[in-house]
Protein backbone atom coordinates (compact mmCIF):
# COMPACT_ATOMS: atom_id res chain seq x y z
CA UNK A 1 0.00 0.00 0.00
CA UNK A 2 1.32 3.41 -0.87
CA UNK A 3 2.02 5.32 2.29
CA UNK A 4 3.62 8.65 3.08
CA UNK A 5 7.32 9.10 2.49
CA UNK A 6 9.21 6.20 4.03
CA UNK A 7 11.16 6.80 7.20
CA UNK A 8 14.24 5.50 5.43
CA UNK A 9 14.11 7.17 2.05
CA UNK A 10 15.82 5.64 -0.92
CA UNK A 11 18.95 7.76 -0.99
CA UNK A 12 20.96 6.57 1.98
CA UNK A 13 18.37 3.92 2.76
CA UNK A 14 18.48 0.15 2.60
CA UNK A 15 16.89 -2.45 0.35
CA UNK A 16 13.55 -2.04 2.13
CA UNK A 17 13.52 1.63 1.17
CA UNK A 18 13.72 0.66 -2.50
CA UNK A 19 10.68 -1.54 -2.11
CA UNK A 20 8.94 1.36 -0.31
CA UNK A 21 9.69 3.59 -3.31
CA UNK A 22 8.41 0.99 -5.74
CA UNK A 23 5.14 0.79 -3.82
CA UNK A 24 4.89 4.58 -3.36
CA UNK A 25 5.35 5.20 -7.07
CA UNK A 26 3.26 2.15 -8.07
CA UNK A 27 6.19 1.40 -10.36
CA UNK A 28 7.24 -1.61 -12.37
CA UNK A 29 10.68 -2.68 -11.25
CA UNK A 30 13.61 -4.72 -12.39
CA UNK A 31 17.07 -5.30 -11.00
CA UNK A 32 20.46 -5.59 -12.63
CA UNK A 33 23.70 -6.56 -10.89
CA UNK A 34 26.66 -4.62 -12.23
CA UNK A 35 30.14 -5.23 -10.84
CA UNK A 36 29.63 -5.02 -7.08
CA UNK A 37 26.56 -2.82 -7.19
CA UNK A 38 22.92 -3.34 -8.05
CA UNK A 39 20.79 -1.04 -10.19
CA UNK A 40 17.09 -1.05 -9.34
CA UNK A 41 15.04 0.28 -12.25
CA UNK A 42 11.62 1.74 -11.42
CA UNK A 43 9.30 2.64 -14.30
CA UNK A 44 6.39 4.91 -13.34
CA UNK A 45 3.01 4.93 -15.08
CA UNK A 46 3.82 8.18 -16.93
CA UNK A 47 7.03 6.75 -18.32
CA UNK A 48 9.41 8.37 -15.84
CA UNK A 49 12.36 6.08 -15.18
CA UNK A 50 14.04 6.10 -11.76
CA UNK A 51 17.27 4.23 -11.16
CA UNK A 52 18.51 3.48 -7.67
CA UNK A 53 22.13 2.42 -7.26
CA UNK A 54 22.80 0.15 -4.29
CA UNK A 55 26.04 -1.15 -2.77
CA UNK A 56 26.63 -4.84 -2.11
CA UNK A 57 25.16 -4.34 1.38
CA UNK A 58 21.99 -2.82 -0.10
CA UNK A 59 22.57 0.81 0.83
CA UNK A 60 21.39 3.23 -1.88
CA UNK A 61 24.15 5.74 -2.70
CA UNK A 62 22.74 7.33 -5.87
CA UNK A 63 19.46 7.83 -7.70
CA UNK A 64 18.71 9.17 -11.16
CA UNK A 65 15.49 10.13 -12.91
CA UNK A 66 14.42 10.90 -16.46
CA UNK A 67 10.95 11.51 -17.79
CA UNK A 68 8.02 13.91 -18.29
CA UNK A 69 7.83 14.85 -14.60
CA UNK A 70 10.26 15.14 -11.72
CA UNK A 71 9.36 12.27 -9.41
CA UNK A 72 8.40 12.96 -5.79
CA UNK A 73 11.83 14.04 -4.56
CA UNK A 74 10.73 14.16 -0.93
CA UNK A 75 10.23 10.41 -1.22
CA UNK A 76 13.30 9.75 -3.31
CA UNK A 77 15.83 11.97 -1.52
CA UNK A 78 14.53 11.79 2.05
CA UNK A 79 16.46 14.28 4.20
CA UNK A 80 18.32 15.34 1.06
CA UNK A 81 15.13 17.05 -0.13
CA UNK A 82 15.44 19.77 2.49
CA UNK A 83 19.06 20.31 1.47
CA UNK A 84 17.97 20.58 -2.15
CA UNK A 85 15.39 23.21 -1.26
CA UNK A 86 17.75 25.17 0.98
CA UNK A 87 20.51 25.25 -1.61
CA UNK A 88 18.27 26.49 -4.43
CA UNK A 89 17.00 29.79 -3.13
CA UNK A 90 18.79 33.11 -3.10
CA UNK A 91 18.84 35.49 -0.18
CA UNK A 92 15.30 36.53 0.64
CA UNK A 93 13.83 33.42 -0.92
CA UNK A 94 14.14 34.53 -4.52
CA UNK A 95 14.29 31.87 -7.21
CA UNK A 96 17.62 31.13 -8.79
CA UNK A 97 16.36 30.90 -12.39
CA UNK A 98 18.64 27.87 -12.69
CA UNK A 99 18.09 24.10 -12.70
CA UNK A 100 18.10 22.55 -9.24
CA UNK A 101 21.53 21.55 -8.00
CA UNK A 102 23.43 20.77 -4.80
CA UNK A 103 27.21 20.85 -4.39
CA UNK A 104 28.16 19.50 -0.99
CA UNK A 105 30.75 17.01 0.21
CA UNK A 106 28.07 14.53 1.23
CA UNK A 107 25.39 15.27 -1.38
CA UNK A 108 25.54 16.24 -5.03
CA UNK A 109 22.45 16.90 -7.12
CA UNK A 110 22.42 17.84 -10.77
CA UNK A 111 19.30 18.29 -12.86
CA UNK A 112 17.98 19.82 -16.04
CA UNK A 113 15.65 19.55 -19.00
CA UNK A 114 12.41 21.43 -19.47
CA UNK A 115 8.72 20.94 -18.84
CA UNK A 116 7.80 17.51 -20.17
CA UNK A 117 11.40 16.21 -20.29
CA UNK A 118 13.24 16.38 -16.99
CA UNK A 119 16.37 14.57 -15.83
CA UNK A 120 18.41 14.56 -12.69
CA UNK A 121 20.77 12.68 -10.44
CA UNK A 122 21.44 12.70 -6.72
CA UNK A 123 24.60 11.17 -5.33
CA UNK A 124 26.05 10.62 -1.87
CA UNK A 125 29.83 10.51 -2.50
CA UNK A 126 30.60 9.43 1.04
CA UNK A 127 28.38 6.35 0.66
CA UNK A 128 29.59 5.27 -2.77
CA UNK A 129 31.59 2.05 -3.14
CA UNK A 130 35.33 2.44 -3.77
CA UNK A 131 36.19 3.23 -7.34
CA UNK A 132 32.71 4.39 -8.28
CA UNK A 133 32.58 7.17 -10.84
CA UNK A 134 29.69 9.45 -11.80
CA UNK A 135 30.15 8.10 -15.30
CA UNK A 136 28.67 4.88 -14.00
CA UNK A 137 25.33 6.58 -13.33
CA UNK A 138 23.79 5.59 -16.61
Amino acid sequence: MAAGPAAHAALGGDTASIEADRAYFAARSSTTAMGGRTVHLLTLANGTVVREFARADGMVFAVTWRGPARPDLRQLLGPGFDVLQADNVLAGGRRTHRPLSVRRADLAVSSGGHSGAFWGLAYRPTLAPPGFSLRNLS
Binding site: A69, R70, P71, D72, L73, R74, Q75, F81, L84, Q85, N88, V89, G93, R95, T96, L100
Partner: peptide, 9 residues
Protein backbone atom coordinates in the same frame (compact mmCIF):
# COMPACT_ATOMS: atom_id res chain seq x y z
CA UNK B 1 1.94 18.41 -1.41
CA UNK B 2 2.17 16.36 -4.60
CA UNK B 3 2.67 19.61 -6.52
CA UNK B 4 5.62 20.84 -4.48
CA UNK B 5 7.18 17.35 -4.17
CA UNK B 6 9.19 17.80 -7.35
CA UNK B 7 11.24 20.43 -5.55
CA UNK B 8 12.29 23.96 -6.40
CA UNK B 9 10.53 27.25 -5.74
Amino acid sequence: RSCSAGGGA
